[in-house]
């Protein structure tokens, strides 16, 4: 392959990457932004834009579209806990086998492998304190290879997914200014 053509190809991929990143940033701010609007924001056709979004969905880059909800404001009580799990890593699979075992429970919202004193940090959501306690005691602590858990309950949310919960930021600029 000639050096110019590989350079041109590289440039093209870089441009595509830039467009993809731009689309993803728009969607991460508001996943309901219509493709027509996104197309106009990035200066591409609607077909191009929908094509790129579909490809990103198919590749699994876009996992899913969700809403950030203040359940408390709705009056819905939910118990959320962060659980630090110490794990004995297994030969061949390391932490993956236990991590996946934990991740498959629907109560478990997120599972991360972290550095520091514990190995896995998981986020669990339950309807009340008792069911959460039961879940940890019966399901997590009893998994082979789990050597200890530390549970921390969430008391109040201040910010989630870039959204401040309690501090609306009104637009108090002058209506017309030079």
């Amino acid at each position: 392959m000639k050096p110019e053509s590989s350079y041109a190809k590289l440039r093209l991929t870089m441009q595509e990457k830039k467009i993809e990143t731009e689309i993803l940033e728009i969607l991460s701010r508001d996943c309901r932004t219509p493709p027509e609007t996104i197309a106009r924001m990035i200066g591409r056709s609607v077909e191009d834009t929908t094509g790129i979004i579909e490809a990103l969905e198919n590749q699994g880059v876009i996992k899913r579209y969700t809403a950030t909800i203040d359940w408390e404001q709705l009056g819905l009580e939910k118990v959320i806990a962060f659980i630090d799990v110490k794990v004995m890593p297994a030969r061949e699979v390391g932490f993956d086998a236990i991590a996946m075992r934990i991740a498959r429970y629907p109560e478990v919202k997120s599972v991360w492998l972290v550095s520091g004193g514990s190995d896995l940090r998981i986020l669990v959501e339950a309807v009340n304190l008792r069911s959460l306690g039961n879940f940890v005691a019966e399901k997590i602590a009893t998994i082979d290879g789990v050597t200890g858990t530390v549970t921390q309950f969430l008391l109040r949310k201040y910010k989630e997914d870039n959204v401040l919960y309690n501090e609306p930021e009104p637009d108090d600029r002058l209506i017309v200014s030079p």
Partner: peptide, 24 residues
């Protein structure tokens, strides 16, 4: 000339302003 518009617009409700010369 901006001042006159400011005075009118400031007295109205539900105005969408594209007249602001500063970042949002």
């Amino acid at each position: 000339g901006i001042r006159r518009f400011f005075d009118i617009a400031a007295s109205m409700q539900d105005v969408i302003s594209l007249g602001v010369g500063e970042p949002d």
